[in-house]
Amino acid sequence: MPLLFSSEHLIPLPCGALHWPARGALLVADLHLEKASHFARRGWPLPPYDSEVTLTRLAAALAHTGATTLIALGDTFHDPQGPARLPSAARNLLAQIASRAKILWITGNHDDAAAATLHGTAHPELVLGPLTLRHEADPADPAPELSGHFHPKVIIRHRGRAISRRCFALSPTKLILPAYGSLAGGLDITDPALAAAAPGGLIALVPEAGQLLRFPVVAQAA
């Protein structure tokens, strides 16, 4: 179900990736690879499989869309030392992905350019056609922009039920992707931080059952 954003057809996928068919590109944000081992080193023994799970999902999305370019919008690793800790299974998955797609890493606040030590190239920002790609939305920039960083999620309360989903956050000129990492948390889309980053009114987009559901957001007071 395509979304028309600044005259470009973009397809938000249920897995949290964004497919841009015209460019043959798949965009993801906030993989936070090796978050578990980062915590483990600080005495909090999370099992070391989060990267593998995230990358398996990513490889499947690439195969499904046939995209030839992969763009990660920052915070690919949870910390700059992440690549050194990447277990071999995950390392192999990443190599497979790199053999099939050109990888562009946008640098994030957690990992800087760490991922580029393995495959691909690192960039502080990218401009692709009419769209600017960066890690964290810049409220001062009027140009149409794709970003990550905030891990948006939406909570729908209906029929006595609260359903929480990772979502895409859409404002008039900005589209913020959900976190892709299996261990990354989420920030409620009504949080004032999101309204401040992407002013002008937000809509939560949830790809579900072959449709793209839209939920207008009433922001909390800051």
Partner: peptide
């Protein structure tokens, strides 16, 4: 206990979406 039922979740999300469309 709330049931983590995928089909009801989807039905409810679709219904909430339709409600919003109808209202707007």
């Amino acid at each position: 206990e709330s049931v983590p039922g995928a089909s009801a979740d989807t039905a409810i999300l679709l219904e909430a979406d339709a409600l919003a469309r109808e209202a707007m």
